[in-house]
Nucleic acid binder design. Structure first.
Length: 234
DNA sequence: GCGACAG
DNA sequence: ATCTTGTCGC
């Protein structure tokens, strides 16, 4: 199945595809230390099919920005809880394909295996690109957990059907936790450690945080261009 | 049937 | 997710 064809899938077909993807997940630990990480996110205007995708590359663990890539495309696939990847991955791949050099690992805004079928957007993206990936979500999709303590990096495991599917991590005191889960080709423990190394005083880890700022900027800029074009005619 | 429900 | 200013709390 080609991501460019996702918009033609029915929800039932998308779910069937997730069952297929699930069998390909590999959560064995990374064998080599990573030197670069990428953060990805998308943005869009309410009621619009236009999506703005962006990826920011950093060296690791210093986290200096070493590159970016963006893409603007359209999607017909609606937002359906549990099927987020079918809406966002195609646009992210457009940005991904523009990168001169691919990062050793990607951090996505959403779940990895902390998903009812273990196929959150981070897992989906990791499988499609055959790249190690981690999911860092701002809210819970599924799984039960006890609230982690209120100190930096306090954590609590998330369970679903008897297995640990993620970690609720206190990335900043007095803020809600973030939900970390491996996407593909990285272990649960490594995922948490890498995300902790990407926290820079904000609740959201730097890769995803910078990607979010980037896509919002290109979205606003794009809106400015539209107004500018109309202005040229009056 | 009811409540939950990534972005 | 997006629309948006001030405001309560650490």
């Amino acid at each position: 199945m080609q991501p460019s064809q996702y918009e033609h899938l029915t929800p039932a077909q998308a779910i069937a595809y997730q069952h297929d993807l699930r069998r390909q997940i590999n959560l064995s630990p990374l064998d080599k230390p990573i030197q670069t990480v990428g953060g990805a996110d998308i943005s869009f205007n309410k009621y619009s099919e236009v999506v703005y995708a962006g990826i920011v590359l950093f060296n690791y663990p210093e986290l200096k920005v070493i590159g970016t890539a963006t893409a603007i495309s359209k999607t017909k696939f609606p937002y359906i809880s549990g099927l987020l990847a079918f809406r966002e991955v195609p646009a992210l791949l457009d940005a991904w394909n523009k990168l001169e050099v691919k990062p050793d690992l990607m951090v996505l805004d959403g779940q990895g295996i902390a998903h009812e079928r273990r196929t959150g957007i981070a897992t989906h993206f990791g499988l499609v690109t055959n790249t190690p990936s981690i999911g860092s979500a701002k809210s819970r999709l599924t799984g039960r957990y006890d609230e982690p303590g209120n100190h930096l990096f306090d954590q609590s495991p998330m369970y679903d059907k008897g297995e640990v599917i993620g970690i609720a991590l206190r990335s900043k005191p007095n803020c809600n936790p973030i939900y970390i889960s491996p996407g593909h080709r990285v272990s649960m423990e490594q995922s948490v450690q890498i995300i902790k190394n990407c926290i820079r005083g904000y609740r959201i880890p730097e890769p995803t945080r910078q990607a979010h700022l980037l896509v919002n900027k290109i979205r606003i800029d794009d809106g400015q261009n539209l107004n500018q074009q109309f202005t040229l005619f009056d």
